[in-house]
Amino acid sequence: MRRFLTLLVIMALLAICVSLLFYPNPIMPVAISSRNGKVSDQGLIAAPWDSYRYNVDLMARVIQSEAWAEPYVGKVAIGAVIMNRLESPNFPKTIPGVIFEPDAFESVSNGLIWLWYPSADAYRATQDALSGWDPTGGALYYFNPSKPVSWWIWTRPIITQIGNHVFSR
């Protein structure tokens, strides 16, 4: 009996150890190819994977992970902030440049954007933001006031609030 228990405990520890060793890397892009049917269903793009298509997908990922629980305008608003940054002299000049700027988006810093495939709404919001809709009034920053944020963010002039996000310049 005792020997059996010992064996059981050792086996359990070994199982934990092995599962930790082979735990999937969280920073692994969800395979797109396996979801291609899904993308087509969303009526998005049958265009080849050129840089434009990649940018749309990247933006949709950020919108999905930053604003999945927000109303639709709140999703467009995140896309609009990316567009406003592109036009601002104080931010990088490309969409990946803006999105991958260190500490610019929480979901990029913690890898959430790679874990989740964007919803049809996220793609729709991306297209609207790319087409020029800006519910933020030209905002460059946003934050969720109910979460702890950098002290610095409070020093920016606030423009408006949409859902749980406060947008500022």
Partner: peptide
């Protein structure tokens, strides 16, 4: 980066500087 990312839930009245 760590010093800058120091967060604070405080309101504008008392911003905590890094």
């Amino acid at each position: 980066q760590r010093a800058m990312a120091a967060t604070s839930a405080e309101r504008p009245g008392a911003p905590r500087k890094p």
